[in-house]
Design a protein around this nucleic acid. Structure first.
Length: 572
RNA sequence: UGGGGCGUAGUUCAGUUUGGCUAGAACGCUUGAUUUGGGAUCAAGAGGUCGCGGGUUCAAAUCCUGUCGCCCCAACCA
């Protein structure tokens, strides 16, 4: 490809609204152009990178007997009614009517389509296990897209669906896909990625893992142990809660004046926050009258994902004032309206000598003993892990990092096969619902992740496994006919030797060419100039290290080819 | 869905507070000359319904109003 003709404009300035590095660099290099909120066009270099990533994904899927298929982008309401998700998914799913007034939708995930396909093709257990996958555009009308390609509304995704006769078979396959995912992320050149246990969310099912790129700009919080390999998404992370013992005293109602916050109470009584309990008010989603109060120890926070799981209810922050609930701010466990649903965190189990609100203006209880003072309490793990907590596996110290979700795998079970009525004849001649797994990777997000992780002050540093071109040739003194001829000959020979080359054939200064080459990030730069040609040499520079050396013109092709295969080694 | 910010040339922005001459700069682009190893110099040039609609005014990029779009924070997020 000749750079002079490439539809891809590099700029010195990033768009004013680009805030994070991957967005800035991909924009400046001309790889992406925003068309609307969360909707981007990709120029040729970006699309080539996308295709290389897709081919690596394909390779790993095919190694696991995946069958590439294509589901429709537009689906009728009916198959989504079967799974119940036509109504359970909100505004994120784009719905519309076709010309004959039928309800249609844009695919945001394809479990329904996968089950529909499998249901009409598989009738015997002898056809299982089977995995089908596609690489296709999805549309999710996100409440807020952000960060360039990090979180978009329209994106290319690989989604795979496997069908099994037994749970054991599904679990075994799940582990294979887990391994395939690690291979994919390593092969596209990501370094700081990990897998974490995650919440299965609205996908349903039991076990799920997310693959995360650790980066400060990540939207997810990940809990990691410094001493063992425990790691989990904040949504499901647990820790060993240390429980300091406080003296068991008689329950006493104390006038605490205007003091309300944990901090004020701690100061008044000179006690640690862990000797208090705090109440956080929620309401059931869609019904602000149905109030839920979560009690956690004063030094902890409520983890909403865990709370929802414990309640088996979707809750949201209560938007009314606290005084609507108990007529004052001092919410406590004693004497609450029985209509209010109450959840206690495990951190409060067995506690004595605590200070809690009294549900009475200006008063708190001191000496609260939960097993003595409250009837029929059950405890759930609903608190958030904090940095410095003890690891639930080894007792080591936990830390928290941010991450971008780059892939996820779910053990779905029979959620979709059952609801959509997919049955297969088993070995015993009886019908059963196949057990499913599903596995997703966002291709655009992978590109953003590479850009986010692999760069320096001058621009992108693309791994050779995904770089749109392996070699970026710069011709200095394009106007010199000898140089131009030699450069063109090298360009053609490299291509006929199977090397992907981008050649900067513009008649402009060296600085401009080097700056653009650095920004665009191809792994190998080859400079052809009068200076080097005077010694019958060309200059080769490695983008990642800026290491530079000269080779004889006639040796250039073999040297470059051997460099490429050497560089490719680590992405095999 | 709350809160905040922004919309002026291909790009990044100034100008809006306090209405007033032909709407500006830099980068990019075109032409010519001189240049040519880390974003060159000189000269000439093209490029704008100031997001869109309505209103106030002798006069609107500027004030009022409606609307659309974009960004950030929070909530949400298979």
């Amino acid at each position: 490809m000749l750079l002079s003709k490439l539809c891809c404009e590099r700029t010195k300035d990033a768009p004013g609204d680009a805030k994070i590095l991957s967005h800035i660099l991909l924009s400046r290099a001309g790889y992406i152009k925003q068309v609307a909120n969360g909707i981007y066009s990709m120029t040729m270099p970006c699309e080539k990178m996308s295709q290389r990533i897709q081919n690596i994904i394909r390779d790993e899927m095919d190694k696991n007997d995946g069958q590439e298929v294509l589901f429709p982008v537009v689906m009728p309401r009916e198959i989504w009614d079967l799974s119940g998700r036509y109504s359970s998914i909100g505004a994120e799913m784009v719905r519309f009517k076709d010309r004959s007034n039928r309800d249609m939708l844009l695919g945001m995930t394809h479990e329904e389509a996968a089950v529909h396909m499998a249901n009409h093709t598989v009738s015997s257990y002898t056809q299982l296990p089977m995995m089908i996958y596609q690489i296709q555009t999805k549309f999710r009308d996100e409440a807020r897209a952000r960060g360039g390609l990090i979180r978009v509304r329209e994106f290319t995704m690989k989604d795979a669906y496997s069908f099994h006769t037994t749970k054991e078979d599904m679990e075994e396959y799940y582990m294979k896909m887990h391994k395939a995912y690690q291979n994919i992320f390593r092969r596209i050149g990501l370094k700081r990625f990990i897998d974490v246990k995650s919440d299965s969310g609205m996908m349903g099912g039991s076990i799920a893992h997310e693959f995360m790129l650790l980066t400060e700009v990540g939207e997810d919080s990940i809990v990691l142990c410094n001493d063992c390999d425990y790691r989990a998404n904040m949504e499901v992370a647990t820790s060993i809660i240390e429980k300091p013992e406080f003296e068991d005293k008689q329950l006493e109602l104390v006038d605490t004046g205007a003091d309300k916050t944990i901090e004020e109470i701690c100061n008044r009584f000179n006690v640690p926050a862990s000797q208090t309990a705090k109440a956080v008010v929620f309401a059931v989603k869609g019904d602000q009258d149905q109030i839920v109060i979560a009690f956690v120890r004063g030094d902890l926070e409520v983890n909403e994902a865990k709370l929802k799981k414990a309640l088996k209810l979707d809750v949201v922050a209560y938007d009314g004032g606290v005084s609507d609930v108990v007529a004052c701010g001092n919410i406590g466990p004693i004497g609450l309206d029985s209509k209010i649903k109450v959840v206690y965190d495990k951190s409060l189990e067995g506690t004595k000598g605590m200070i809690v609100g009294a549900n009475k203006p200006g008063y708190h209880y001191v000496g609260f003993n939960i097993s003595r003072d409250v009837k029929d309490v059950t405890f759930d793990d609903i608190s958030k892990v904090k940095a410095g907590d003890k690891c639930p596996i080894c007792g080591g110290t936990l830390r928290i990092e941010n991450g971008i979700e780059i892939g996820n795998i779910f053990q779905l079970g029979t959620k979709y096969t059952k609801s959509m009525g997919m049955t297969v004849t088993g070995p015993d001649g009886q019908l059963f619902n196949p057990i499913m797994g599903c596995y997703g990777i966002g291709v655009g997000r992978a590109i953003a992740s590479i850009a986010q992780e692999s760069n320096d002050k001058d621009g992108l540093i693309l791994p050779i496994s995904v770089a749109p071109w392996q070699v970026h040739m710069c011709i200095l003194r394009q106007d010199d006919p000898v140089v131009a001829e030699k450069a063109n000959a090298l360009y053609n020979d490299l291509q006929s030797n199977g090397v992907d080359v981008l050649m900067d054939d513009r008649n402009c200064g060296a600085g401009i060419k080097f700056t653009d080459a650095d920004l665009m990030g191809m792994p190998i730069r080859v400079v052809v100039s009068p200076k080097s040609l005077a010694n019958d040499e060309v200059e080769i520079t490695i983008r990642a290290t800026k290491e530079s050396f000269k080779v004889k013109y006639e040796d250039a092709i073999s040297k470059i080819k051997s460099m490429i295969s050497e560089m490719m080694e680590q992405y095999k």
